[in-house]
């Protein structure tokens, strides 16, 4: 599963310039031969390892690399960089 995890992390990094959070469906497209359940397992593992974090709008949930993204800092009380 290490390879698959690498693919996911690389995907996050390659997109990080424009957006840091992605829907579950985006990862299905990375693994066209895998069933959704298998892809979910990889992501859940990455969450458990502390590599990936969930992000929620309340109604929907997205995945992102831990610590990455503009909202993280703001939410924990820091001011955004001017």
């Amino acid at each position: 599963m290490a390879d698959e995890k690498e693919i996911i992390v690389e995907y996050f990094k390659s997109k990080a310039k424009t957006k840091t959070k992605h829907y579950f469906k985006d990862f299905l497209e990375l693994f066209p031969d895998k069933k959704p359940r298998e892809v979910k397992k990889i992501l859940s593992d990455l969450v458990k390892e502390g590599v990936v974090d969930y992000w929620s709008s309340g109604s929907t949930t997205m995945y992102g690399l831990k610590g990455l993204g503009k909202q993280e800092e703001v939410e924990e009380g820091e001011q955004p960089k001017d």
Binding site: K19, T20, K21
Partner: peptide, 11 residues
Amino acid sequence: KLCEIPLAVAA
């Protein structure tokens, strides 16, 4: 500065 614009667009 506050937002990832593509996320707001996609939402």
